[in-house]
Every structure is written in C-alpha cells, then in structure tokens.
Amino acid sequence: MGRRDEEGVAPELDLPAPATGEPAIGEKEPPPHYHGHRDRLRARFLNQGPEALQDYELVELLLFQAIPRRDVKPLAKELLARFGSFWALVSAPVPVLRDEFKLSDAAIGAIKVVAAAALRMAKRELLDRPVLSSWQKLLDYCQGTLAHEQVEQFHVLFLDGRHALLRDEVQQRGTVNQTAAYPREVLKRALELGASGVILVHNHPSGDPSPSRADIQMTKAVVDAAKALEITVHDHLVIGRGRHFSFRAQGLL
C-alpha cells in the first residue's frame, strides 16, 4: 500500500498521462501524416521525373497547393476512376468537377491549367511549320483539343502556301451528336486569311469516329466549292476518343 500523509489521505502519484493521441500541454502538434508523403512525392518527381510517378500521383501533385490540409490521394484515385485517364480528367468540364466532386475553384484551376498549357505547347509546335510533314503532331493536337468535348465542334485548320498552320478556328458548335458546317463560311474565311489549303476537323462525342452520311455529304460540298477557288482540302478528320477517321486515308477525298 502507498504511504499516507498526516491527514490519512494518500498523496497523488506522479503517473504518466494516458495516451490519448493529443499532444501534451506545451508540446508542438506533429504534422499530419500526409505531409511527409507530399515531400517524398515531390522529391521523387523532381529527382526521377514524371515517369517515376503513376497517374494518380501526378494528380496528387496538382491538388497539393489547392488543398493544403487534406490527404488528397483518395480524391486523386477517385477522379481518375471517374474519368478513366489523366488527359480525360484535365479535359473534364468545369461544372462536373465543381458539382460532382465539390472541388474549389483553386483545385479546378490547378487541374485545368495542365490541359491549357499542353494544348498551347502542342499548337505552338504546329504554327509556322509544314503541318503535312508533322502529321502525328497534328493528330495529337486534334485529339487533345476535341476528343473529350461533350458536344460536337467543327474546326477548320487554315494553311498557307507552305502548308504551315495559320489558324485553328471553331466554325460551329453543335448538340451532342451533330453540327452544321457551311461551305460558304469556311471558304469565305479562307479567303480572308489568304489560306491556300484547309483541314476540316470535327469530333464525335460518342467516341466513335466513323463518319455519318451528313459528314460525307458536307465534305464533298466543301471540296467542290474549294476547287473553284483553288483552295485545297487536304483532309477531313473525325476525332473520337483515342481514335480518328481520316477521309483522305480512307479514299473519300
């Protein structure tokens, strides 16, 4: 038995406080467990390059600055599972990211700036260079621009006499499965820009790039009208998800 004091009451023993997970008074609270993970992930990215990271880890890096007080690994994996790929995620519509995942504007901005930067660099690779000899770069640019759009868009790439890209312009935006392209408007703009050739490009939101009867008829109308003006229609590309259809390659031009 413990020793009692003069009043007969046992003195309080100086026992260690029970482990509650809370820091003792005067102690500094330890950093959250994910802080070390963030530091290690950044170091691996900087020292070994992006190839050393999985897609969800790249998404984590995007979210770190926008969401400083949360473990973002589960969110990064959830976003990739929802959209299917890194590029589909950064191309995702803003309302979906905001409404479905409750992401802040800061987080959405961190995600969307990646797509904007990638497309700007891809376009820069095409400007003032012969597009027809950089065909894979052109396809990559068209895929990045249109493959994940939710509605059809009809673009015209205007080329100069050296086949270098002058402009990429959206001529029409349609519904989820159709768009109207007007040959007269396409050729009027080509004359305004002094273009000697065009490449027609539009997307199919369904992901299937197979051309419709309307696509084929519209292409023929543009080609016929362009001949009279000595403007060459080099191709019509239909962009799906990860696939494309080339009218020229399939003998339709």
Rank of each mutant, 00 (worst) to 15 (best):
A181S: 06
A190N: 11
Q172W: 09
G194S: 07
K102H: 13
V9G: 04
G242H: 07
D128N: 12
Q172P: 00
Q150I: 10
E78W: 00
G207V: 06
F158V: 03
E7W: 11
F158D: 04
P11W: 06
L127V: 12
E152F: 03
R82F: 10
S196L: 12
A214D: 14
A190V: 12
D215K: 03
V186W: 10
M218P: 00
E12K: 15
P32D: 05
Q178W: 09
R189P: 06
L132C: 03
L139P: 11
G144A: 11
R162Y: 01
F86A: 01
Q217H: 10
E149W: 01
E185Y: 10
K73L: 15
R42S: 01
G207I: 08
S196Y: 13
F64Y: 15
D14Q: 13
V223N: 04
P205V: 05
S196H: 13
R3G: 09
D235F: 02
L252N: 11
V59Y: 08
H155W: 05
Q217I: 10
K112Q: 13
G8L: 14
A88N: 01
E230R: 06
A110C: 03
A228T: 07
A181Q: 11
V156C: 12
R184P: 00
H33D: 05
R120S: 14
G197C: 08
L252F: 15
L97N: 06
V96H: 07
S212R: 05
Q54H: 04
R167A: 09
G36D: 12
L41E: 13
L253N: 14
P209I: 06
D55W: 01
I111V: 08
L138H: 13
R213P: 01
S212Y: 05
L165N: 07
L63P: 13
E29N: 10
V201R: 02
A76I: 02
K73D: 12
A117T: 11
Y34S: 04
V90E: 01
N47E: 12
V238P: 00
T219G: 02
S91F: 05
R167T: 08
L187S: 15
K102N: 14
D39A: 07
K77G: 02
L80H: 04
A225K: 08
A147T: 01
H148L: 05
I239A: 03
A24V: 06
A107S: 08
S134R: 15
R38N: 13
P93G: 09
L159W: 03
L13H: 11
P74I: 05
R189N: 10
F245D: 14
V186E: 08
K102D: 12
D71E: 15
